[in-house]
Amino acid sequence: MNLKTVSNSAPPAESRHEQRNYCIGLCLALVLTLIAFGLVWLKMVSGTQALAVLGVLALVQVVVHLRFFLHIDLGKSHRDDLMLILFTSLILLLIVLGTIWILWDQHARMM
């Protein structure tokens, strides 16, 4: 019976809240994308500095996507998924940095 009252009263408020979340996510992602493309279009970054600035912007945008589109947050029920994502991120970091390190080293020796 409680189920009934919940399903009668909760949806409008929750629905609005969830719609707003997607809209916030879209706006933040748009702003971050525009900043990243703007910096390169206006030639404000280059070289290693570009890698750092664009990397940070991308990282923030990934977090925005995870938070607002995939709804990953620090809530208790999401811990397993968060652990899974963080562990995978560690593996990804090892694969990417390890490959780049080894191949740069090989490249330097071949020169």
């Binding site: 280059s46 664009l54 990397g55």
Partner: peptide, 11 residues
């Protein structure tokens, strides 16, 4: 788009 396109053009 960050590491292939933007960084490719910026660097």
């Amino acid at each position: 788009f960050t590491f292939v396109y933007l960084f490719g053009v910026a660097a």
